[in-house]
């Protein structure tokens, strides 16, 4: 009996392993995605100066906490191609939905960022210039663009990795903002 169980073990192990592999094939699963350690934590402490030669003020944790309503924080850079596509969507969210949008300009040369904003327009209320990328690490970002929803109490409630371009992505952001507003 023992021997029979022993001989059947390899087949059993193979079946279990196969189950995991099948689960792993789920097309919605992205093996490269990193879950955020920040969601449901307070905004990390940081203070960033404005982007040089722009009129937009800089961004800090204190500023984010003092707003008192849900707000969107978008991490962007002029060298990031998908950010360009996302820019129009963010502008529309600000102009049509009245979303309050803050920006973190990540590992960018200030002059490039200023040109970029000049060319495409500036939907951001405040922009912090994170030219060395340190604050990016505080936020645990794994690339640009990334967008966070902060509720009225300064708690990070949602994170979106990648450009917000598809209608589904926009709906997710709106829903997250609405949920953040409902809580406060």
């Amino acid at each position: 009996m023992m021997k029979k169980i022993l001989l059947a073990m390899p087949a059993l192990v193979a079946v279990v392993l196969g189950g995991f592999l099948f689960w792993g094939l789920n097309p919605d699963r992205d093996p490269n995605a990193i879950p955020s350690a920040l969601v449901s934590e307070p905004v990390p402490d940081f203070e960033l100066p404005p982007v040089e030669s722009t009129q937009t003020p800089g961004l800090s944790a204190a500023a984010l906490r003092s707003i008192g309503e849900p707000v969107l924080v978008n991490v962007f850079a002029s060298w990031c191609v998908p950010c360009r596509a996302e820019h129009a969507v963010l502008t529309r969210l600000v102009e049509q939905d009245g979303v309050r949008l803050m920006g973190i300009n990540y590992m960018d040369k200030p002059a490039d960022a200023a040109n970029w904003l000049e060319e495409l327009g500036n939907p951001y209320e405040r922009i912090g210039s994170d030219s060395e990328g340190r604050v990016g690490i505080e936020w645990g970002i794994s690339g640009v663009p990334e967008t966070f929803v902060i509720d009225a109490n300064g708690i990070v409630v949602y994170r979106y990795v990648g450009p917000i371009v598809t209608p589904e992505a926009q709906d997710e952001i709106r829903a997250a903002l609405a949920a953040a507003g409902g809580q406060s």
Partner: peptide, 12 residues
């Protein structure tokens, strides 16, 4: 799984 099942059955 096929070959291992065959194995479990025939190995004895």
């Amino acid at each position: 799984v096929g070959s291992l099942t065959l194995y479990a059955w025939r190995a004895p």
